[in-house]
């Protein structure tokens, strides 16, 4: 093999590396939404302003069975929505409106200070909610 063909081989290798890198870098970008395309925050701010989100804590937001199994996912989503996106209003399938806040839950469940702890103790789970949030054990809601 002469010098020139060696050069061509190396050039081809470099090109293929570049093409691979190109596709690697741009692989995840197709179809993803650019960050600034979300228009909701401005709208949310306008709707959130006076009076705040309606709170209807007379009954549970979703059926007891569902909440028993999925309250952690619900709370996690609420946290993201209310803290980071400003979307504070939860509408359940019956059309009732709730404020996406731990206080919505504690509005009723706070009446039993042991409500959260009994089950967490039994299931031996240690959520970190009460490191910061004040539980009904510490402050009457």
């Amino acid at each position: 093999m002469n010098k020139f063909s060696q050069f061509l081989v190396a050039l081809a290798a470099g090109l293929s590396v570049f093409v691979a890198a190109w596709f690697f870098i741009h692989a995840g970008h197709r179809g993803s939404v650019p960050a600034h395309a979300e228009v909701s925050p401005a709208v949310a701010a306008a709707t959130v302003k006076p009076g705040g989100a309606p709170v209807d804590s007379a009954k549970c937001i979703l059926p007891t069975d569902y909440m028993r199994a999925h309250h952690m996912q619900v709370l996690d989503k609420w946290r993201k929505d209310s803290v980071r996106k400003g979307n504070r209003t939860f509408v359940n399938p019956e059309g009732a409106h709730f404020d996406k806040s731990l206080n919505t839950c504690l509005g009723c469940h706070g009446s039993n200070p042991m409500f959260c702890f009994m089950c967490h103790e039994y299931a031996n789970v240690k959520p970190t909610c009460w490191n910061c949030h004040l539980s009904p054990m510490e402050v009457s809601q």
């Binding site: 060696q6 050069f7 190396a10 050039l11 081809a12 290798a13 470099g14 090109l15 590396v17 570049f18 093409v19």
Partner: peptide, 10 residues
């Protein structure tokens, strides 16, 4: 060296 040249050309 040559591979780098190729990448640059690409």
């Amino acid at each position: 060296k040559k591979a780098g040249l190729g990448a640059l050309a690409g």
